[in-house]
Simulated scan of single mutants.
Amino acid sequence: MTELVLVANAADSTISTFRVDAERPSLERIAVSEVGQGCGTFAVDVERDLVYAAAKGDPPGIDVFALDRESGRLEHLSRTDVEGSMSYLALAHGGTLLVGASYGGGSAEVFGVDGDGHVEEPTASVSWPNAHCVAVAGGGRQLYVVSLGGDVVAQYALSPAGGLAPLAPPTAAAPDGSGPRHLVLDEEEAHAYVMTEFSGEVLVYDRDASGDLVLRGQVPAYAQDRGLRHSELGADPVEGHLVWGADLHLARDGRFLLASERSESTLASLPVEEDGSLGEPVSLIDTVAQPRGFTVLSGGTFAVVTGEKDTDVALVAVAEDGTLSEVARYETGAGANWARAVTV
């Protein structure tokens, strides 16, 4: 088996493909493929070697590419225009559905996917202000929509036909003004973790068998000693030196949660306790400029971090005790802001 890392370079409208050498460890860039304008998110169907990449422009769209496992190249197959550009994409029900969040459009949509991988017209659409993330759980039976502008996580039942029905209750609250952004679930799906953009915290939710999320607590995941101030919708985080939380992923078999913050360009490591709660960061390092997105490699001991204001990605080691250290940097392209590791 080979592990690849795909990185979206939004300013170049390309996706770089890296091959992972697990023994060294290191990355080798093996291909750079042209994709749609301003691509900042994509989803990978490993079973069918398909990549669904969001594109901005007029109109925005979702392009489908065939991934060549050996060369790493992407071959364009089809395009579907959409109402609003997508900030997050995820697959569900064995790749027969594609779900997207549109920040600018204030909505989340479900699309059917045919046998050739072509994205069809939406089967369902729900409105949420500044929807920033979608996450699928329960074998595809539940869908979470993270609304940055609404300070909630909306909860839905997702049918194999692509229908959405609100759970009871229909939303899980986030702290007022926190700006919830991205959501990940632990392996057992007993807990959900949400990174906030404006407060730079990781919110911890308990999840029951029905899919309902209940807020349990929150832990800061940014450099608290560098003068950062709480942000708000519409503020300029660079000019105001404001908190600018971005992405989060679990590492080391779920024993640590990593989180990125863009104003100070840091990556933090928080311990995950046996009950799913989080401890204070055990490590926080400087990384590539404006780390909007990152991914954790299959072994859970390394992360690949992208920077919106950098042309390199950073390979970061996660030690047994959660300590982070940068191993190397590799050229990728301009405006890198999304990464996914896939085993093919």
Rank of each mutant, 00 (worst) to 15 (best):
R24T: 15
H182V: 06
D186E: 03
Q37E: 14
G84I: 10
I15S: 01
F111L: 00
T323P: 07
A209I: 15
A135Y: 11
H93G: 03
T306V: 13
H182A: 02
L213P: 03
E83F: 14
D176N: 07
T96V: 12
D247I: 05
D186V: 10
T332D: 07
R255D: 02
R19F: 00
L250D: 05
G38M: 05
D275P: 03
G227N: 08
L89I: 10
S78E: 14
W244H: 03
G105H: 13
A43H: 05
A190R: 15
H132C: 12
D312W: 12
Q37C: 04
F302T: 11
H132E: 05
P220V: 08
V46H: 09
F302R: 14
W338C: 07
M195C: 00
H230D: 06
D286E: 12
V126W: 13
G94S: 03
D58S: 11
S263Y: 05
A268T: 09
A303P: 15
E232Y: 15
S269W: 09
R216C: 07
T2C: 03
V153W: 12
V184K: 04
G254K: 09
V113E: 04
R141P: 13
E188W: 07
V64C: 06
R29H: 01
V219I: 13
V99Q: 00
W244I: 00
D63I: 08
I285Q: 00
G36P: 04
G300S: 10
Y144Q: 06
D12V: 05
G163L: 12
S210I: 01
Q155C: 06
L228R: 10
A334K: 12
P25L: 04
R329N: 04
V305N: 11
E189F: 07
G245V: 06
W338L: 08
V146C: 04
G100P: 13
A11M: 15
V344Y: 12
P122Y: 00
E34I: 03
